[in-house]
Design a protein around this nucleic acid. Structure first.
Length: 511
RNA sequence: UCCUCGGUAGCUCAGUUGGUUAGAGCGGGUGGCUGUUAACCACCAGGUCGGGGGUUCAAGUCCCUCCCGAGGAGCCA
C-alpha cells in the first residue's frame, strides 16, 4: 500500500522525539474540524496522540483529505513533535504530510454511550476504543509481572493439557468434545497435572485457559477464562499463605506503578490497590463464621451492623436521588428550549436508572443480613458474605481451614480436626470477592482413595494421580488465580467480560 | 433451572388513566462558527414500536405465548 513506511515512530516513544520530524502510522481515533485546522487523534496501539493539520503546512489536497477522514480511517502522517501541556502524554504532532491507506465512513461505534449487547456484537471493533486499550495494557502488564515474579522465584512454567479425560473436581459442568473414538473434556483446572509437574520440577506454574460450562449470567463468570496455577513441592499451608500474600502484593504494586495513565483513563483510583502493601487479614473459617453471624465483632462492628450501615447509606442516597428526580420533573414541566429540556431529560433518565439499582440493593440488604445472621459452620460464602468480610477488614482477606464437606477431595486435612481441610481463599476488596483458591494437598494414597470414593469420582481415572503418592510423596501446596477476576479488580471493571479480548460466556460465542 | 428488569429511528432513550399524524439527543446530509477535547448553532432525511395470537370502536400502551438481552440466585475463579 502506498504510504507504508518501515521507519514509523511509535506513539509511546514520541516524548523522546520533541523537536524532531517523525513518521507515524495508525488509525483515526477522533477528529474535530475548525476553519483553519483539523485535529486528528491518531492511535497506533501504543498510545494516542493529537495531530494538528493546517492548510498552510500540508497543502490544499491533504487538508481536504483531513476533512474526509471518518473514525478508524487508516493513515500515514509525517510531522514535527511539539510539546503541549494540554495533551495527555504532553506532546502533539504538527503535520507536514498526510496520506490515507483507507478513508472510512460510517464506523459503527460512535463517540457516545452504547449498550452492552451492541458493543459485544462488535467486540472486534470495540477493542480499539481508548477504554478497552487501557484495560488490555493493564492485562498485559499483569501477565508480564506474574511471569517475572515466578521466574525470579525459581519456578518453571509447565502447562497442563487443555483436553482431559477426567474431571478434576467432578462438581462443575464440563464441556465435552469428541476425541477420536472417546469423549474428552475441556480442562476446568490444570491442578492435578500441576502436582505431577511439581514432583518433576520442584516449583511450577501453569498459565492457560480453563473452561466451565456453568449457565451463570453474572458479572463474575466466563465460560472460558485464564488461570494461573502454581504448585510447589515441600510447601505447607502457612508457606502457601505467605506466598499468596507476597505474590499478590508484588504483582499488584508493580502493575499499579506501571499503569498510571491507564488507570486515569479508566477513572480507577489506585489508592485501594496500594493498600495491598499492608498485611492481609488471615481468618480461620470458623472465625469467619462467627464474624458473619455476629458472635464476634471486628473493630467494634459486626457483619450485621456493617450491612445496617450500608443500608443507611443506600437509603440516604435513594432519598437524595428521589429529591433530584422530583426537582428535574418539576423543571421539565416548565417551558424551556428543546436543547435544555433534553439535557434535563437525560439526567432524569440516569437518575431513574441509579434509583433502580439502589432500590434493588435496599431490597437485597435485608436478605444479606439474614444470610449473615444464619451463617453456620458448613456453609459456603455467597457473594454478599465475601463483600461484607472485606468491608469489615478494609483489606484483602484470606480465609483458611475450611470444612472438608464443601471443598475438593485433594485437600489435606487439618491435624486433629477431621472436619477441616487446609484450604485457603483470597477475597479481593471493593466487592470483587474470591480471586484465589488454594490448598495444601493430601499426600497419603489411602486417604485420597477414600475421598475419591466418597465423592463418587471414577477411581480408575485417578490412578496416575495416585502414583504421585506412591513414588516419593512430599508435602506440597498450590493455588489458582482467576486471571480475569484479578484484572477486573485492578481496573475496577463492572464485569469480567471486559477483562479478556474475546469473552466466551453463556449465550456468547461470537465474534 | 429460578427471580427481577428490559426490547420504540443507525445508536442511547422518552412516550401520562388505551385516543387524531410516534418524539428528542447523538450519528448521517447541507450551511455557519470555532486551538478543538463526546465541540457548538440552524435546517433536512430517517420508524412494520422484538415475533405471533387475543381483548377493544381504538393497542407502542392491556392479556397470553415465544424469542432475545441485562442484573441477581444457585455454582464457581
Amino acid at each position: 500500500m502506498e504510504p507504508f513506511t518501515r521507519d514509523a515512530t511509535l506513539v509511546k516513544h514520541l516524548p523522546a522525539h520533541v523537536g524532531q520530524t517523525v513518521e507515524l502510522q495508525g488509525w483515526v481515533a477522533n477528529r474535530r474540524d475548525s476553519k483553519l485546522r483539523t485535529f486528528i487523534v491518531l492511535r497506533d496501539g501504543t498510545g494516542f496522540v493529537q495531530c494538528v493539520v493546517e492548510r498552510d503546512r500540508v497543502g490544499e489536497a491533504a487538508f481536504a483529505l483531513s476533512r474526509k477522514l471518518g473514525l478508524e480511517s487508516s493513515i500515514y502522517v509525517r510531522g514535527k513533535v511539539v510539546s503541549d501541556a494540554r495533551q495527555m502524554g504532553g506532546v502533539e504532532v504538527h503535520v507536514e504530510t498526510l496520506k490515507a491507506y483507507q478513508v472510512v465512513q460510517d464506523y459503527p461505534i460512535a463517540k457516545k454511550a452504547h449498550g452492552v449487547e451492541f458493543l459485544m456484537d462488535r467486540r472486534h471493533l470495540w477493542l480499539r476504543s481508548r477504554r478497552q486499550w487501557a484495560i488490555m495494557q493493564i492485562r498485559n502488564r499483569a501477565i508480564q509481572a506474574i511471569h517475572r515474579y515466578f521466574q525470579r522465584h525459581d519456578f518453571v512454567q509447565a502447562d497442563a493439557p487443555i483436553l482431559t479425560g477426567n474431571a478434576c473436581e467432578g462438581t462443575t459442568t464440563l464441556f465435552p468434545t469428541p476425541f477420536y473414538d472417546q469423549t474428552a473434556y475441556l480442562t476446568q483446572s490444570g491442578q492435578l497435572y500441576g502436582e505431577a509437574m511439581a514432583m518433576a520440577f520442584g516449583r511450577i506454574y501453569t498459565f492457560g485457559p480453563t473452561f466451565r460450562a456453568e449457565k451463570s449470567k453474572t458479572r463474575r463468570h466466563l465460560s472460558e477464562f485464564w488461570m494461573i496455577e502454581p504448585e510447589m513441592a515441600f510447601f505447607d499451608l502457612d508457606m502457601l499463605m505467605d506466598f499468596i500474600e507476597d505474590f499478590v502484593r508484588t504483582v499488584t504494586l508493580e502493575v499499579v506503578e506501571q499503569s498510571r495513565m491507564e488507570m486515569e483513563i479508566l477513572g480507577r483510583d489506585p489508592a485501594p490497590l496500594r493498600k495491598v502493601a499492608e498485611p492481609f487479614e488471615r481468618l480461620e473459617y470458623e472465625r469467619a463464621v462467627r464474624v458473619l453471624n455476629g458472635t464476634e465483632r471486628v473493630n467494634g462492628m459486626s457483619a450485621v451492623e456493617m450491612w445496617r450501615q450500608e443500608l443507611d447509606h443506600t437509603r440516604a442516597e435513594i432519598q437524595s436521588v428521589q429529591g433530584r428526580i422530583a426537582e428535574l420533573e418539576g423543571l421539565l414541566k416548565q417551558p424551556m428550549k428543546e436543547k435544555k429540556r433534553n439535557y434535563y431529560q437525560a439526567e432524569l433518565n440516569q437518575a431513574k436508572a441509579r434509583l433502580h439499582t439502589l432500590e434493588e440493593r435496599r431490597k437485597n440488604i435485608p436478605l444479606w443480613i439474614e444470610s449473615a445472621e444464619n451463617f453456620r459452620f458448613g456453609n459456603d460464602f455467597g457473594g454478599a458474605d465475601e463483600t461484607v468480610l472485606t468491608l469489615l477488614f478494609d483489606r484483602p482477606v484470606m480465609v483458611y481451614n475450611w470444612p472438608r464437606a464443601i471443598k475438593a477431595f485433594y485437600m489435606k486435612g487439618v491435624p486433629g480436626r477431621p472436619d477441616l481441610v487446609k484450604g485457603v481463599d483470597l477475597l479481593a476488596p471493593e466487592g470483587y470477592g474470591e480471586i484465589v483458591g488454594g490448598s495444601e494437598r493430601e499426600t497419603d494414597e489411602q486417604v485420597l482413595r477414600q475421598r475419591i470414593r466418597e465423592e463418587n469420582l471414577p477411581e480408575e481415572a485417578f490412578e496416575w494421580y495416585l502414583d504421585l503418592r506412591r513414588f516419593g510423596t512430599v508435602p506440597h501446596a498450590g493455588f489458582g488465580l482467576g486471571f480475569e477476576r484479578y484484572v477486573s479488580w485492578l481496573a475496577k471493571l463492572p464485569h469480567v467480560r471486559e477483562a479478556i479480548p474475546f469473552p466466551r460466556m453463556y449465550g456468547r460465542l461470537f465474534p
